[in-house]
């Protein structure tokens, strides 16, 4: 499929097993894990990603210390860390500032 050469669709930005871009998936997982601790299955269902993609995402976020893995009984749960909150806040601020600047 030909891609538009002059905009953001171009380039290697999509996850290997999903048509969604990295920013969507990372921000979504960070936001979901912000309200409460989430299991991998819960995230899998909510984000509608393939197992390999959600594993890849969780590994990435864990490696950057943006989420933490907690043991809740036999279950492994994930929660956004302070650093993750900061990163997500930056994501929101980016959009807020952009819309405030472009308000007519």
């Amino acid at each position: 499929m030909r891609r538009n050469p002059c905009n953001f669709y171009n380039g290697d930005i999509s996850m290997s097993s999903s048509r969604r871009s990295k920013f969507e998936i990372w921000a979504e997982v960070l936001e979901f894990c912000l309200r409460a601790k989430r299991t991998q299955t819960w995230l899998l269902r909510k984000t509608r990603l393939k197992t390999s993609a959600i594993k890849e995402t969780l590994e990435f976020l864990l490696s950057r210390n943006l989420i933490e893995q907690l043991n809740d009984g036999n279950m492994k749960k994930y929660q956004t860390t302070k650093r993750g909150e900061e990163v997500l806040k930056r994501f929101y601020t980016l959009i807020n500032d952009y819309f405030d600047l472009n308000q007519v």
Binding site: R64, F91, I95, N102
Partner: peptide, 19 residues
């Protein structure tokens, strides 16, 4: 507006990768 915003969000993802 949204079309111009998305590249900025991709930059955010690139920043995360660089962490």
């Amino acid at each position: 507006k949204w079309e111009q915003l998305f590249p900025k969000l991709n930059e955010w993802a690139q920043e995360l990768e660089q962490l």
